[in-house]
Write a protein that binds this DNA or RNA. Structure first.
Lengths: 330, 330
DNA sequence: CGCATTCGTCAAACCGGTTAGATCCGCATG
DNA sequence: CATGCGGATCTAACCGGTTTGACGAATGCG
């Protein structure tokens, strides 16, 4: 049992707790002689300072948090999230900071989670799946918990943001499809109260002009299937569909095929977020790789800066790359 | 700032800290009258107890941990991990336990991470990616940090284990291929010092008997591609390949195709872990869904029990289901 | 040589909870 | 009426670090 405390080390080195603490942190000058003795003693007892004691004394948890209000099953089917976390971790690994991941079933639990985070569990939070007028923003402001918003939040806020230009790739895809002769281009969006869904949908609407064929999905395969069925049942069915993620695109593609259409000849299909298998589908799926890892890194850096007292700022990560593949190639 | 402490609540309610604590925890009888006053005061000040103070006093962090020594990029391409975490979270959400995720670059950092976890950051750890004779097992025993091993660890240990029978689905697939007339069946494994890679590879070797065609990959797409290239370059090339994960299988499939083979006519292909897109590939990929969420739930439950002092035990989760799809259908 | 300053260390308070032991009270019992 | 007893509450110590103010010794300066 690693029951050794700073007091044991102090005794072993023949000094006091304070001296040990200073020797380790360097916050006060300590003679080389004593420091050596302390380090040796710590080594001998292989002492590791208690995180909880330190957290209490310094009012710093050395941890960041991500709270997700999603159904656990959904996490497993999302290609953005794991890569985003990977990016966050690559920054945190440098310092000794931990990442706390909390999945909550409902809003009450989510609120409790943030309250408890702000009371010693974490030093800051990353907000994903932003909604327009997200209730979490004022809550975190009230709790005085540093945060970074991942997404194009429009309301004024004192938090840092990590944004991307999701409209550009949408325009690019639409232009490409137009150049290919497509005139009826549809869009299956995510829930429109998510800011990223909204931005993509708006970009779509702008790009196609008057004749928008927009259907709101929820990022699940089944919704992709259903919205596709609706679109294909229209008297004048679309010749191309842009989906707001790859899961819906794949489901739509399967459905279209099963109803006798050939992809991309009869129907062009494009997704979003570039799942790691999308390039290997057949036909390979045109998609937008949205740089999840880069955004994770940026968010983690901004949050760490915020915690250290830096001014909040908005960082636009230029990471969207459209991969045109067979599913849109005539 | 939620600076209210238990002392504020005590003053507001006209009692002492101890009474507030007891009223909240119920560890000592408190009159209904006083309890009501305390609850009202807590509500009024909306006080949330400090996690760090509680952790220090009770020697319990209310957090479990997963430490990963993988390259962050690999996490993003693994279909097992996110689903496993989802399973873990679905258990933790019930209690107010948090999950700590730490990704470390090298062994030294990993060891530091476990030491610091055992000193107040977490109450227990889940061990993934087990190796034969894994060095982490004795370390955690020495640190006296509760743990659950996810995988078929063979050495004696006082930790609980979550196992699955990975050999059965391998046998099932081989039998299926045999019945289809395949005689030269190859296997691209993961790194053989991982216990799950080893179990699958051994099951393969057993099942095919003398003429095993085994190549060791590392679960990445590029290794899948290379090992496939080697196998197809053999004088008598295999007519079927079983891969230890879907990423390698897809990469192998692409390679085989690009060198002129038709799947499944010229080459049958099967993967493992059933990525959520595998069913949608074309040809759809035969794979083994290994119940990651169920295993996550089981592991979390065992760990919580262990922390509360239960006897360690091994739970075999029967969750492997083979999905035969087009990639193996003649 | 006397006094101010700096350096290195110590003692003690503090962070915000939990918990063992002491105390106080009212009521039942001998 | 004294005693016992159990329930409700209080007091104070404790968890293991960090941090501030104080103090003695060594050094610098006039």
């Amino acid at each position: 049992m690693s029951r050794t405390t700073i007091a044991d080390v102090a005794r072993e080195a023949g000094v006091t707790k304070a001296t040990v603490s200073h020797a380790m942190s360097g916050k006060r000058p300590i003679s080389d002689d004593t420091r050596a003795k302390v380090l040796a003693a710590a080594e001998r007892l292989n002492w590791v300072p208690s995180q909880s004691a330190r957290a209490l004394a310094t009012q710093r948890a050395n941890a960041l948090a991500v709270v997700l209000a999603r159904d656990p099953e959904v996490i497993a089917n999302d290609s953005f999230f794991p890569a985003f976390i990977a990016g966050v971790e690559s920054v945190l690994a440098e310092t000794e900071t931990a990442l706390i991941l909390q999945v909550v079933p409902d809003r009450a639990a989510e609120e409790r989670a943030y309250r408890s985070l702000s009371r010693g569990r974490a030093d800051g939070a990353l907000l994903l799946d932003l909604r327009n007028d997200d209730w979490r923003v004022p809550l975190l402001e009230e709790l005085d918990l540093p945060a970074v918003l991942v997404g194009a939040y429009e309301q004024p806020t004192r938090f840092s943001c990590v944004r991307t230009d999701d409209a550009a790739p949408v325009r690019e895809i639409i232009a490409h499809l137009r150049a290919d002769g497509h005139e009826r281009i549809a869009h299956v969006s995510g829930p429109l109260d998510y800011v990223h869904s909204r931005v993509r949908a708006d970009a779509y609407t702008d790009a196609v002009g008057g004749d928008a064929l927009l259907r709101e999905g929820d990022f699940t395969a089944s919704s992709g299937r259903e919205r596709t069925a609706e679109l294909l049942a229209l008297p004048e069915r679309p010749t191309a569909i842009l989906y707001s993620n790859d899961t819906m695109a794949i489901a739509g593609l399967s459905y279209a095929r099963s109803s006798g259409l050939s992809i991309p000849r009869d129907l062009a299909i494009a997704g979003f977020d570039d799942d790691h298998l999308s390039a290997h589908l057949s036909p390979a799926l045109t998609s937008v790789s949205s740089g999840p890892a880069a955004r994770g890194r940026a968010a983690a850096r901004l949050l760490q800066a915020d915690i250290l007292g830096a001014e909040p700022r908005t960082e636009v990560v230029d990471c969207n790359v459209v991969h045109f593949r067979e599913s849109t190639t005539r």
